[in-house]
């Protein structure tokens, strides 16, 4: 996309485009800056100023509290483990299932696809799923956070359609060269799908990172609680059930502490994206084959 000739209108568009996107970036990012600022601010400042980007007095008290015990560090460790393992399992299962389904002549394909689409809108609900997880002996195991949600049917359908758009000539020539379907999948399809893999790595990783509900249902051992569950503990106490808030035994968590936990629980997954971004560009390869 270099050295394109640019019309005056195009140049106006460029200027507008840059300004608009820069403003959008600011608008989306500034509230997070407020959260970061709040995590370093004193309670009285948070109460006194409705919104600020730099605290008047900077204090690390909230972080000192968070890191005064190993609890949060351990829970981040749990989250990282579940996210890495879960993303690997999910990608593997999604890719291996999506590829055969992208082959239109496969017998039984339509039945399977219909059954998959069905699960996107119909589900058994919390209690029956719990029963299955329990009967598989997964309770209190980190696998309970991964296996019941290993394939997202939405992602499966999207990956399948990505595969469908791959040029079939490639597969055919590979087959002529003596590759089996399995060989085509691992040696041709997977290498060509880097942007897809990068995208769904991100999607699954973010999903696993943000999930707290499955941990709430399936994990009793607090040593295996992910960081989002701790965040939930702190955020919910004060907000949802305000009227019934049980503050008699323990004071409600301080605002700065809540914000610090948000920062601690969010930043690891945030920095994951820029790292993945460069892999999106590698999809160029795919196009060059087409041409």
């Amino acid at each position: 996309m270099h050295k394109m000739h640019n019309t005056p209108l195009g140049r106006v568009f460029d200027v507008f485009n840059h300004i608009f996107l820069a403003l959008l970036g600011l608008a989306t990012f500034i509230p997070f800056v407020y959260v970061i600022a709040g995590s370093f601010a004193t309670e009285s400042e948070i109460a006194a100023r409705p919104f600020f980007l730099i605290p008047e007095t900077i204090t690390t008290a909230a972080y000192d509290y968070i890191f005064s015990t190993t609890t949060f560090i351990r829970s981040i460790g749990v989250s990282v483990l579940v996210t890495v393992l879960g993303t690997l399992v999910s990608l593997l299962l999604t890719m291996t299932m999506a590829y055969p389904l992208s082959r239109k002549k496969l017998l039984g394909r339509n039945l399977i696809l219909n059954l998959v689409v069905f699960t996107m809108v119909f589900n058994g609900g919390m209690i029956p799923t719990y029963m299955v997880v329990k009967s598989l002996g997964l309770l209190d195991s980190l696998w309970a956070l991964i296996l019941p949600v290993a394939i997202n049917p939405f992602y499966l359908i999207i990956v399948k359609s990505f595969f469908q758009n791959l040029p079939s000539e490639l597969e055919e020539s590979a087959k002529i060269d003596g590759c089996s379907d399995m060989g085509v999948f691992w040696r041709i399809v997977i290498p060509l799908s880097k942007p897809v893999i990068a995208t769904f790595t991100l999607f699954y990783a973010v999903f696993y990172w943000n999930d707290f509900f499955n941990a709430l249902l399936y994990i009793s051992d607090s040593a295996k609680w992910p960081v989002q569950l701790l965040l939930q503990q702190l955020m919910m106490v004060a907000n949802m059930d305000f009227g019934e808030m049980d503050t008699m035994l323990a004071d409600p968590p301080e605002e700065s502490l809540k914000m610090a936990v948000v920062v601690v629980a969010t930043v690891p997954i945030l920095i994951f994206y820029p790292f993945l971004q460069k892999h999106f560009a590698k999809g160029i390869l795919l196009g060059s084959v087409k041409g």
Binding site: M126, F213, S222, Q233, D246
Partner: peptide, 13 residues
């Protein structure tokens, strides 16, 4: 010990 945030669900389950 069940996290207080969604205690009711765990009770039902």
């Amino acid at each position: 010990f069940v996290p207080n945030s969604n205690y009711d669900e765990r009770f039902n389950i």
